[in-house]
Lab assay of single mutants.
Amino acid sequence: EVYKVKIKIERVLPNGEKVEEEITIEVEGMSEEELLALARELAAEPGVRIKEIEIEKLPP
């Protein structure tokens, strides 16, 4: 199964400015739980906050 994972994050820059970013990846052969863990890892940097995680199962 192939999933499209869209992660919206908010990053706080050293000057205090907040910037929103969106990361989209396609992943194959992982469960939804593994995808959530991967998304959290991607956003685990200091000053980064996850705003939204969207997981979509793509048709075969």
Rank of each mutant, 00 (worst) to 15 (best):
E56G: 11
N15L: 02
L35Y: 05
K51V: 15
V2D: 09
K57P: 06
E1R: 04
I23P: 00
E22G: 02
Y3I: 14
K18Y: 14
G29W: 08
E28D: 09
N15I: 01
E1C: 05
I55H: 02
E32V: 15
A37F: 15
L42C: 05
E1Y: 09
E20S: 07
E32C: 04
E20A: 03
L36W: 08
R11V: 03
I23N: 01
K57F: 15
P59D: 04
E52G: 09
E52P: 00
V12T: 13
I23L: 07
L38E: 01
I9H: 00
L58R: 13
T24M: 10
V12R: 08
I9A: 01
R11Y: 04
V5T: 01
L36E: 07
E54A: 11
G29N: 12
V27A: 10
K8V: 10
E20F: 06
L13M: 09
L13D: 03
P14H: 13
S31T: 08
V19G: 02
E34D: 08
R49V: 10
K18F: 08
E52T: 14
L38K: 09
K8P: 00
A43T: 13
I23D: 00
E17N: 10
E17F: 06
R49W: 04
P60M: 01
E34G: 12
E28Y: 10
E32R: 05
V2S: 10
V2N: 15
E28T: 14
P46F: 14
G16S: 02
K4D: 01
E20D: 11
L13W: 05
P14Q: 05
E54K: 10
P46N: 14
G47S: 09
Y3K: 15
E22Y: 11
N15G: 11
G16N: 03
E34I: 15
K4L: 08
V27D: 02
E17H: 14
M30H: 10
E26P: 01
V5C: 03
E41F: 14
M30W: 13
V2A: 10
P59E: 10
V19S: 05
I9F: 08
N15S: 12
L35A: 10
R11T: 02
Y3F: 08
A43W: 07
L35W: 08
L58S: 10
G29R: 05
K57M: 15
A39E: 03
K4H: 11
L38I: 13
E32N: 15
K4A: 07
E26V: 11
P14L: 11
I9R: 02
E33G: 06
K18G: 05
I50Q: 00
E10R: 02
V48R: 03
I55G: 01
A44R: 14
E22F: 06
E45Q: 14
I50F: 03
T24V: 14
G47T: 07
K18R: 11
V2K: 15
A37V: 14
E22M: 10
I53N: 00
R40P: 01
A43H: 08
L42V: 05
E45S: 15
E10M: 06
R40C: 03
G29S: 12
I9P: 00
I7P: 00
V12C: 04
V12P: 02
N15Y: 03
E34C: 04
K8T: 14
E33M: 10
E34F: 14
P60K: 06
S31F: 05
K4W: 07
I9V: 11
K51Q: 05
E34P: 03
V5K: 00
I7D: 00
R40S: 10
G47R: 04
E41G: 12
L13I: 03
E56M: 12
L42M: 14
E52S: 08
A37Y: 09
Y3L: 13
R49K: 11
E54M: 15
E17C: 11
E17Q: 14
E32T: 13
K4M: 07
V2I: 12
E10G: 02
E41C: 09
E26Q: 12
I50W: 02
E22R: 05
I50P: 00
E32L: 08
R11E: 00
T24S: 06
E33A: 10
E33W: 13
K4T: 06
I55Q: 01
I25L: 08
E56Q: 15
G29D: 07
K18C: 08
G29M: 07
L35S: 09
A37W: 05
V5N: 00
L36I: 10
V5D: 00
G29P: 06
K18H: 13
L42F: 04
V5Y: 03
I53Y: 02
E10Q: 07
I55E: 01
K6Q: 04
I25W: 13
E45G: 13
I50A: 01
I53D: 00
G16Q: 02
R11M: 02
K57R: 05
E56S: 13
I7V: 08
E26C: 04
K4P: 03
E56H: 15
P14E: 15
L13Q: 04
A43N: 08
V48F: 07
V48Y: 09
A39T: 06
V2T: 11
E32I: 14
E28F: 05
E21F: 12
I25Y: 03
E20N: 08
K18V: 09
K18N: 05
I55V: 06
K6F: 07
A43R: 04
Y3A: 15
R40I: 14
L35V: 07
S31D: 07
E17W: 05
L36F: 04
G29Y: 06
K18D: 02
L38V: 07
E28L: 15
E56R: 13
R49A: 10
E45I: 14
P59T: 15
A43G: 12
E45C: 09
R11I: 04
E41R: 13
G47P: 01
Y3T: 14
V12F: 08
P46D: 05
G47Y: 01
E20G: 03
K18A: 11
L36Y: 14
K51S: 07
E20T: 10
E56T: 14
E52A: 12
R11A: 01
I55A: 02
E22C: 07
G47I: 02
A44W: 14
G47M: 02
V19K: 09
E52D: 15
L42G: 02
K18P: 06
E56D: 06
Y3E: 04
G29I: 04
I53C: 02
E33F: 12
E26G: 05
P60Y: 00
A43P: 02
M30C: 03
A44Q: 06
I7H: 00
I53R: 00
K57Q: 10
L36N: 10
I53S: 00
E34A: 13
K51C: 04
L13C: 06
E20H: 12
L58Y: 12
I9Q: 01
P46H: 15
E41W: 08
V5F: 03
E45D: 09
A39Q: 04
P46E: 05
R40H: 09
K8Q: 03
E32S: 12
A44K: 15
E17A: 10
L58K: 11
K57W: 15
E41N: 14
E32Y: 07
R49Y: 06
E45N: 09
E17Y: 08
P14D: 11
V48P: 00
E21R: 09
G29E: 04
A37M: 09
E33K: 06
L42A: 06
G16W: 02
A39H: 03
K8S: 09
T24C: 05
V5W: 02
V2P: 05
L42T: 08
A39W: 06
L58M: 12
R11D: 00
Y3C: 05
L36Q: 08
G29F: 07
E28Q: 07
I50Y: 01
E22A: 05
L35Q: 02
M30L: 06
P46Q: 13
I9T: 03
A39K: 04
V5R: 00
A43M: 14
V12E: 13
V48E: 01
E41L: 15
L35T: 12
K57C: 04
E54C: 07
L58C: 04
K6R: 09
I7Q: 00
E32F: 11
G47V: 02
K4R: 10
V48T: 09
E22Q: 13
A37I: 13
K51A: 06
E54P: 01
V27G: 07
T24I: 11
K6D: 01
V2F: 11
L35C: 05
E33N: 13
E45A: 13
A39Y: 12
G16E: 01
K4C: 03
P60R: 06
I25H: 02
G47Q: 03
I23H: 06
V2H: 15
V48K: 02
I55N: 01
E20Q: 14
E26W: 10
V19C: 08
K6I: 14
L38P: 01
I25G: 01
